[in-house]
Structure formats: structure tokens, C-alpha cells
Design a protein around this nucleic acid. Structure first.
Lengths: 147, 147
DNA sequence: TAATTAGCGGATAATTTTGTCCGGTATAGA
DNA sequence: TCTATACCGGACAAAATTATCCGCTAATTA
């Protein structure tokens, strides 16, 4: 559904939200990668993309790391994370890959996929990092699994 | 959403359905690739996958080509095409990439994505190649675009 | 100011996906 | 049976994605 980069980005952002909202403390790359079970160096690249898109915040140097501001917690949605990493293709493009698919010249599945697209946009756009962080905090959601 | 291979496979299968239902005649690889706007050699690989999965039929030699039997037209769904080419990951796997995501240890978006998954399965599983071919035949759907 | 910390950015490598090429094989028709 | 046709299958190549490494820079602390 999403690229690996995007999956890591979402998990990292939610974890970051949980730590920022919970303890207010910054988290280092190493911690993030360990907590969400992702490759460290690759995760760094993804986080840099999110920083550039101003969806998360970074601070260099000792005691530095990543964090979410109160505003980011309140306003950044999963949709923004997805668009920043994967672009809008999944949210808008034609399911059959036609470059100009529209009501004018619809692919045979055009109208069947519309509600799915709408719902995906709705679901991704209506959940903020703060909300999702709360879910993890309350033990209602997990970012890594144990056996 | 789907891989390129899968997009080509779906478009090819629907076109094949249209030709089989319409004129009852076999279609060669060259025609298919030209009609759906896909790279010929790569499309051949995808078609071979569909033949092996018995979702489409092929005949070698002169006057040979690809076709859909009446039964394939009536019973094969887009879902089978997708599963044959991309596997079930998109239809079942966790959106955040957790390997063991389930109600037991759900990811934070688990329950939000459930209805989307269900609808996707429903939409893909409830449209046969024959149906979609009819739509193309009636000018209600396109497999390639002109300007 | 020196030393240490931790994110940034570029280069590089491994893997997967996408795409091509070409000889082999089956089949229809003369 | 001979020939032309068209799918099959394996090898190969290009591009994108995923992943790693390392030196640089900013910032904190002593």
C-alpha cells in the first residue's frame, strides 16, 4: 500500500508524537529506529524528508534529536506524512495506471474506486499525530510487536 | 496502488475480455500491448503469469494468441488478477507494515483501515472480466487514452 | 575554546521492479 | 513435411527503491 519509506515515516512520526506528548523529551534517531523496528540509516533519510516538509522538528548537537511541537501534534495528519514521502499518486492517481483517467475518459473501474479513494483520503486526513500518539500511549495501538 | 505489472495485467485482461466477448477472436501480444499502451516484452511476462494461473488462455502458433473462455469471462474477477500478480499483501497486509498486525496487537490505524480493505476486496472481487469488458464495449470505460 | 554529541548530506551498494532480447517449442496451413 | 507464426522461458539490462557508510556541521557542556 505504502512504500517502506512511508511506513517507517508514519511509525516514526507517531512514536515521536507519543514521546513528545508524553514526556516532552526529544528522541534520537537510534531510539526511534529501535522502537519502531526500522533500519537506522534509512530511517534517518526519511526523517530528514519530514523535517524539510516541516512535519517534524529536529535539533542538532548534544541533547538534540527529533520532536513534535505542540502545533505539529495538533495539526499534522497522516495524509501530510504520506504525501511528503510517497507523493500524491496513491491518493489521486488512476488504479489502472491511466495517465489521464477522469470522468471525461474513465477507466472501467473509475467510479468503483472513487469511494475507496475518498475514504482513504478521509481516514488519512482526519487523524492527527497527537490523536494517534494518544492511542499508543493508552495501549490501544502498537508500533512494534513482541511475541 | 498496484504495481506496473499488475496495472498492465488488469488492462490486458479487460481488453482481452472485450475482444473475446465481442468478436470471439484471439488477440496477439502485439495487439494487446498496442491497445493498452504497455511495453510489449514486459506485458508478455505478465500475460504468462495469468496463463499459468489459468485466468486467461493462450494458444501457440499461427492464428494463436490470447483469449478468454466463456467461463473465464463469467467467473474471473479483478481480485484474482491482482492476487496472481501482486500477491495478497495489498489486500491483507498492515498499512503501517507491521508483520503481525491484528486485533491482538493492532497498529494505531488498524481499525480505520479495516473498512477500506473490506471495500477494496469487495470492489475487486465483485467485478468479472466479462462485466468490465461490456463496459468498455459500451464506451463507458477506456483502457487507453487519446487527446 | 575544546571536546563530544547528534542530525545533515553526499556517495555508494544491495535488492526489487521494470523492461529487453533471443533462441526454443508448439501449431496451423500449404 | 516444410515454413511461418506466435507464445514460452531463460538470461540479461536498466531503473527505482531500500539500505549503508562517512565526513561535515551545528550545538551543548565542560
Amino acid at each position: 500500500m505504502f512504500s517502506k519509506a512511508c511506513e517507517y515515516g508514519i511509525r516514526a512520526a507517531i512514536y515521536l508524537g507519543q514521546q513528545s506528548a508524553d514526556s516532552g523529551r526529544r528522541v534520537g534517531l537510534k531510539d526511534i529506529a529501535a522502537e519502531i523496528g526500522s533500519p537506522e540509516a534509512f530511517t534517518a533519510k526519511v526523517l530528514q524528508q519530514l523535517v524539510r516538509a516541516q512535519l517534524i522538528t529536529s535539533v542538532k548537537g548534544p541533547t538534540g534529536g527529533f520532536e513534535l511541537t505542540a502545533e505539529q501534534l495538533r495539526t499534522v495528519t497522516l495524509r501530510q506524512i504520506v504525501v511528503a514521502i510517497d507523493g500524491g499518486a496513491m491518493l489521486q492517481g488512476c488504479a489502472l495506471g491511466l495517465p489521464q483517467c477522469s470522468a471525461k475518459q474513465p477507466c472501467p473501474m473509475h467510479y468503483q474506486f472513487l469511494p475507496i479513494r475518498d475514504q482513504l483520503n478521509e481516514v488519512l486526513g482526519s487523524h492527527t499525530l497527537g490523536e494517534l500518539a494518544g492511542k499508543v500511549h493508552d495501549g490501544l495501538g502498537f508500533l512494534k510487536q513482541f511475541s
